[in-house]
Nucleic acid binder design. Structure first.
Lengths: 226, 226
DNA sequence: ATCATAGTTAAATCTGTATTGAAGTATTAC
DNA sequence: GTAATACTTCAATACAGATTTAACTATGAT
């Protein structure tokens, strides 16, 4: 068991491969060439590294014509990379500076079963600003008006409160370093959006895409420009 | 940000350092010499590697006389190592003991020689709730009724008290972040459970599996649903 | 005071493996 | 068909950094 652990650590530990993992963390699938550009090395070299990661089952690949799309092969792998990302000392967030060069997917991925990524954070901001939820010493609470809002959105808050799992809690996303909404309310929000086809899950990835409808509705309900 | 990620990955990625991390995963603090033995390399080499891990704040050290005790510097580090441990292909689990969120390492692992992981924490909770043990300014004590309970369980508390090692102490588990029971009482509990075939050790792993009998008994004695 | 143990530091060496260069196959475009 | 793109394979090379050799400091035991 130990040697397998060491092998896994070594695989991720190489600088080029770590850069690959970092790139893939946004949930998208990348082609070998894209990765070689992102990581700034030769295609041959990328090919070799991808081979090793595939062999170890850290990545999986899907062939489409002459392209090969690589992604994390399972969520456990993503967790390792995320856990590592969390080791990084947190920078202060200069909110709008980096929003330009956002990769489409770092953009709106699901953090387990709630919305994280840029959209998740923007959503939390919006709900806070509209006083639908209120921050109170590091927890979130739902205001009386908020309760109305949620039921208008088709979410029964009383129902959510009954569930055993944590009701509503701020969840710090590694990629955004800002709070978004987890807990049963987070899940309900996510599900409602899926149900209404504002967003769609992609297969084999934690990334989520926003539909045309979602784009309009998010602007309307949350003043979020996606 | 990316370069810091790569640096962190590289630090854990070296075989010797990975072995150090693996060793430290059980939660104990180790001296440099102990680590050099566990990892099978020279003291000089260990010293060099520990220096790097310290420098990067992945480990912290405490000096005691001529010994230096190394441990993970924070839970984030432990999470990375645990997440990596979870990458390792799981040994097959008998259907009886399978439970939904089975993760070999987190689930029910031994922390040195007592029960940690999910079960260990639940157990401590149960014993506290039943007032078998009592928390008193960050230590655990056994109540008079508790003493009876333990002897009913086949554990002689007076015997345990005589041992030189720490009798009973709360131990913070990395994976659960809640206290469980260490000390000689913790060991006795663990051994008793093994003896009664409530749980079984797996070869080559810290994980422990719960037997069908254990499942029933734990529910009965501790109201723990496994 | 002396010796053993614990750990560190510095320079010399060694080695695994990442990278590169050259040549190959497969697919799409024209 | 030919050319271009996407990716792989193999042998040759380069090099970071792990390990070793050796000499050192600090603490504890007798």
């Amino acid at each position: 068991m130990e040697d397998q652990f060491i092998k896994a650590a070594g695989l991720i530990g190489d600088a080029t491969r770590a850069a690959i993992m970092w790139t893939l963390l946004d949930g998208r699938a990348f082609t070998a060439t894209e990765l070689s550009i992102a990581v700034n090395t030769s295609p041959q070299n990328i090919s070799m590294h991808l081979g090793k990661l595939l062999e170890a089952n850290l990545l999986s690949v899907e062939k489409q014509g002459r392209h090969k799309y690589y992604r994390f092969s399972n969520k456990e792998v993503a967790y390792v990379v995320e856990a590592m990302a969390n080791l990084i000392p947190k920078p202060e967030i200069s909110s709008k500076t980096k929003s330009e060069n956002y990769a489409p997917v770092k953009y709106c991925r699901t953090c387990y079963d709630h919305l994280a990524g840029k959209i998740g954070v923007a959503l939390a901001d919006s709900l806070l600003e509209q006083k639908i939820i209120i921050e109170k010493n590091n927890t979130f609470e739902i205001s009386p008006e908020g309760q109305k809002w949620f039921s208008g959105f088709g979410i029964n808050i009383e129902e959510a409160r009954k569930q055993k799992r944590i009701f509503l809690k701020p969840c710090l996303d590694w990629s955004e370093r800002r709070y978004h909404i987890a807990g049963s309310v987070g899940t309900l929000l996510l599900n409602k959006m899926l149900e209404q086809d504002w967003i769609r899950r992609t297969t084999n990835s934690r990334a989520i895409i926003i539909t045309g409808k979602g784009e309009k509705e998010m602007l309307k309900s949350f003043k979020i420009v996606v």
